[in-house]
């Protein structure tokens, strides 16, 4: 089916997409993530932002913001800029964390989508992105849970060790057995022994949760 204008995440008149019955799939498509591996979802974008699709996976190759509310864009810019000056310490609530909680509660999936885009485009430095990912697993917000899980799973395959580690930590916090296949795949590909062992611990935790 063709999405309504509102469903098309404020695409104005620049694009449309065909939706599937899966809300998460639709959410990904809304953000401009193109799934070409499924028969039911396609996305056509005719605006200035170009997305490149990958067969059998999502792609997020834009370096420009999608159409997100300007106030969200401004808030994200402020929060992420301030975060560069922060020293993130495990066990302490950073200003970044407080900002992320607010953004996810106020803007839901749209905020997560924009964070995902910036992380993939490497617009956020690794240490800040690492903190973002860990908090994506901790935030208690049901409506964005699927999108946050997707963001974490995707980053298990980042080329940054920092990011891969934090994606695993975020998944551990989220404690969702749905991540088991992605985790297994990441473990099979992980070259760093120490990180592989940590991911295996997370896998065992999720398997325990499933039982």
């Amino acid at each position: 089916m063709i999405a309504t204008h509102d469903e098309a995440i404020q695409n104005n008149d620049r694009g449309f997409f065909l939706t599937s019955d899966d809300p998460l799939t639709n959410a990904k498509a809304k953000a401009g993530f193109i799934a070409t591996g499924t028969a039911t979802t396609a996305f056509v974008f005719v605006g200035p932002v170009t997305f490149i699709s990958n067969v059998y996976g999502w792609s997020l190759n834009s370096t420009e913001s999608t159409d997100i509310p300007p106030e969200l864009n401004n808030l994200l810019n402020k929060i992420l800029t301030d975060a560069r000056e922060e020293n993130f310490e495990d066990g302490n609530m950073s200003q970044l964390a407080k900002g992320l909680i607010y953004l996810v509660e106020a803007y839901g999936e749209v905020a997560v989508q924009e964070l995902a885009r910036r992380i993939v485009a490497k617009q956020i430095d690794a240490e800040v992105a690492s903190e973002v990912l860990q908090w994506m697993g901790r935030i208690n917000h049901q409506a964005s849970r699927g999108m946050r899980l997707w963001l974490l799973e995707r980053n298990l395959l980042s080329n940054s060790l920092y990011i891969r580690d934090s994606a695993g930590l975020g998944i551990a916090s989220l404690n969702d057995p749905a991540a088991i296949p992605s985790l297994r795949s990441a473990i099979a590909q992980e070259k760093n022994c120490a990180l592989r062992e940590d991911l295996e611990q997370v896998l065992r935790q999720l398997e325990g949760t499933r039982q």
């Binding site: 080329n159 060790l161 120490a194 990180l195």
Partner: peptide, 15 residues
């Protein structure tokens, strides 16, 4: 000493 583990891991393409 409490640390951040990734700062001490080296077996990575980026390093």
């Amino acid at each position: 000493r409490k640390v951040k583990k990734p700062r001490w891991l080296k077996d990575d393409d980026n390093l």
